[in-house]
Design a protein around this nucleic acid. Structure first.
Lengths: 197, 197
DNA sequence: AGGTTATCTGAACGCGCGTTCATTTCAATC
DNA sequence: GATTGAAATGAACGCGCGTTCAGATAACCT
């Protein structure tokens, strides 16, 4: 009675759409609170069809989180790092804010759904997160050694700065008082002072 | 066949136990992922008995969050604020870290389960959260006016500082490298520099 | 034009969910 | 020792869950 394929468009699109929809719904309502049938409805398909693209619900969550963190690390690699530690820290600050504000849903999921990962999946995600923390820690460490930064504890400073920067995603609105650039400038100002440079 | 009450102890304890257990499980696995039957099992009771103490699951979540935020605001009122803005900011920093590290589960829930609140409950919780943010904002504002702090944007600074301080709860471990006092001291150092004092 | 294959449907599976309630149990009171 | 009433049981309610799969469908290939 109904069409097995959407008229005029290849089902090449169902895979990406599934991930888009899942990302939005997981971010909005939480992984545990969203059903496969809700996702399927928004994709425009029956629930069973989703399993042509994912092994199961857990695999879908894991894939979203892993992709996000791999994108994050790859994007930083592709970013101009600047000459010295001070320039690197500014680059990191601006990069982090820009990257995170561009994908609020993925960020939300990566920070909030860790506890819904099965142990082995959790280990992978946690490893990627650690790698990103190390990026900042290395910058701070180099700057401290070069006498550019004043830090009582490099590791804590890295965690503090990342928490501060990531916090932007919880309140920033595109139609708000400040532009992204303005926010990045203000935060860079605070970060610079916090590390004693 | 089974006892309706636990031998020797009044059921006076079931209410508090219910909240304790729910808080721990919600923090660990998330509100949507925890069932009333799981909570009941840990309390040592059948699921139906829980409804002698709560209206429904949503009411339980709301009660946990409201109580936590009211405790937070009341505890700050009872705290010695110090003489000037600089002293007040130091008091706030140390208070925030101490209070949050003492109740990691409640903190987790208050930050992660906002999206599982029904709209009217959300409004109440959001109002309490705003009131707490205003506490810090007022301190920063006074310090700026007094020329003690250098801040390009008071509101952003307040959000940044709170995000930074609350971040402690995501990594701090009692058996870790640093004591709570040491962590508080290091963070106060960074906060002080970040606000230009 | 006809066959192949990727894709989707629709029904089914067992299960656990939040919540209600008549009944039972037992500490406290008289 | 009988009465009372708060507290807990255990069964039941309808429902939606994640997942599977045989069968239907339509785009693609020759």
């Amino acid at each position: 009675m109904f069409m097995a394929r959407t008229c005029g468009s290849h089902s090449q699109t169902t895979g990406p759409r599934l991930r888009d929809v899942a990302q939005r719904l997981f971010a909005r309502h939480g992984y545990a609170a969203v059903s496969m049938r809700q996702i399927a409805a928004e994709v425009g398909v029956q629930a069973g069809a989703l399993y042509n693209y994912i092994p199961d619900k857990q695999g879908l969550l894991f894939d979203l989180m892993r992709t996000h963190l791999e994108d994050l690390l790859a994007a930083w690699q592709a970013e101009p790092h600047g000459a010295g530690p001070l320039e690197a820290l500014e680059a990191f600050t601006r990069f982090h804010i820009r990257f995170h504000l561009e994908r609020p849903d993925a960020v939300f999921i990566a920070y909030m759904e860790l506890r819904n990962l099965e142990p082995e999946n959790f280990a992978v995600i946690e490893g990627l997160r650690k790698r990103y923390e190390t990026v900042l820690e290395d910058i701070l460490s180099a700057g401290k050694q070069a006498g550019v930064f004043t830090l009582p504890d490099t590791k804590l400073a890295a965690l503090a700065v990342i928490a501060m920067l990531t916090g932007v995603t919880t309140w920033y609105r595109d139609d708000g008082r400040l532009s992204r650039d303005r926010v990045a400038r203000i935060y860079w100002n605070m970060v610079r002072k916090a590390v004693g440079a």
